[in-house]
Design a protein around this nucleic acid. Structure first.
Lengths: 275, 275
DNA sequence: CTAATAGTGTCTATTAGACAGTATGTT
DNA sequence: AACATACTGTCTAATAGACACTATTAG
């Protein structure tokens, strides 16, 4: 079960597997993380973060990748990401949504694998000490240029960089097609999955209530605003923000105190009544 | 190769196939169709229409279904729907977009099949006489009720009805989950694919230029508006509509005459400059 | 002339963006 | 007191909705 190199591993791999197609699911698990501020008055800087696992076997041995696994013949498609999610985080009943299916002929060096990717949104603070030992949260930073996006993931120890090329699709769409331009750190075509998820979340935050899956039970509006800002990658104006979320939250009688400024009221998610 | 019944067919089916997963793609090919008006003055009523093929083998023998087929081991995932599209319509370079992947354990009685569905948008008038003989265009009518959608497809000879149940997903989303509530006419879980495509198109028409894939080279704004109306399933006000599409079209010096009213200028698609 | 669609001007309502101001905790 | 954030009032700009009006053809 231990091979000296990837080539040796591939040589030994069951060649019979080559003429059939296998199916896996990969999960992009996103959450929000805080970075403790040095100034006692300032609020913590927030990041989007993604859960990666380190591969301990070929192919891509010792590289980080998204949690994933093979679909079982008697398993419902959506049960596969749920099973893997439970495996990695011990979490059940999590927000899960199908992202996209990837089927490049050579995306896996072992054999032909088509992968259905899913996105899960969680509040990572609810699952402390429940992570599997080979998993780690990486903060997400990204920089959008003319027709590239540079993404940098960082868990305090390792840094993962990759670049995605954006090209405008056919004449008739103003939507982009994404390809991997540079990637040495992340296994498979997972940079595409990560970027697809970020784009989807950015979009969905505007017309659904999915953000609240990433929030604790009680939260201050300032924190919620920061989560919006980190996802949308831009500053929002206070009054505008409060108008937008006004009917999605309800005030509790609790307040958050202890910071060097006016305490904030704590809110909880409320299912919007209108529209 | 000819079986008396579906049960007999399934009994004879290679049982070895049961312990592996196969992958197919299904394509939802949408277009716009006209229904000639009885009143010479009135413009033709428009419908969305979908291309279906009649199955000539088990399972679902003699039922209509979406064109589809098995992914080949050495074929890129997106090449599969392209190949099938060329087979059924002789069309290449068509707008294609991945919709969703379906993987219910029992969605195909033969064996475990996961299907990646695609949506193609075409102008059916550009492909006259090029259809494969077992294919036919069906007009789409649908009626949205409280938590159901009744969809009726009609090709002049056959009528296909099915009902989709809408349920609000988790507390945190205001998006729906769709299930088949009634279906006796359409093979497999294809009602879900059709509805997913209609929803997607309804949505995309608002922030992309995909509609123009369904339009002829030159068109009158009245026709374009009718296409919007039939896709969005509601009437639009003229001035508002013209404001919205103003920077997506450019006027030509040609006019459409012959109807019992003021002739309309003909426009063509122009890639929007702003935003 | 008439029925039907083509096409435009303009008023109003709603929503988004911007800024300025007041409030209140900790050190 | 000073800083940083909490929270609100209000003005303005941009956009969407509504209606009314004029234009032009085949029959």
């Amino acid at each position: 079960m231990m091979y000296k190199s990837e080539e040796e591993f591939l040589k030994a791999y069951n060649p019979n597997a080559y003429d059939r197609i296998s199916l896996t699911t990969d999960i992009l698990i996103l959450s929000i993380s805080d970075e403790a501020s040095t100034n006692y008055r300032k609020s913590n800087k927030k990041y989007m973060s993604v859960l990666l696992v380190k591969r301990d076997d070929y192919p891509f041995k010792d590289k980080w990748c998204l949690p994933g696994g093979f679909l079982r013949v008697d398993e419902e498609l959506e049960d596969c990401p749920k099973r893997i999610l439970a495996q990695e985080t011990n979490l059940h009943d999590i927000y899960l949504e199908q992202l996209y299916s990837y089927g490049g002929v050579n995306r896996d060096p072992r054999m032909r694998i088509v992968s259905v990717s899913y996105m899960a949104l969680v509040d990572k603070n609810r699952l402390k000490d429940k992570l599997s030992p080979n998993a780690s949260w990486f903060n997400i930073n990204y920089f959008e240029e003319e027709d590239n996006v540079l993404v940098i993931l960082d868990n305090g120890t390792d840094t993962i960089k990759f670049k995605i090329k954006k090209t405008l699709k056919e004449l008739t769409t103003d939507r982009y097609k994404f390809e991997i331009a540079e990637n040495n750190d992340l296994a498979f075509d997972h940079p595409l999955v990560i970027w697809a998820g970020i784009e989807r979340l950015k979009n969905k935050i505007g017309y659904t209530d999915v953000v609240f899956n990433m929030m604790p039970e009680l939260f201050a509006l300032g924190d919620l605003q920061q989560v919006y800002e980190v996802i949308l990658n831009k500053k929002l104006l206070d009054p505008a923000f409060r108008r937008i979320i006004a009917d999605k939250v309800e005030k509790t009688d609790q307040v958050q105190t202890g910071a060097g400024h006016r305490p904030s009221a704590l809110f909880r998610y409320k299912k919007s009544t209108k529209k």
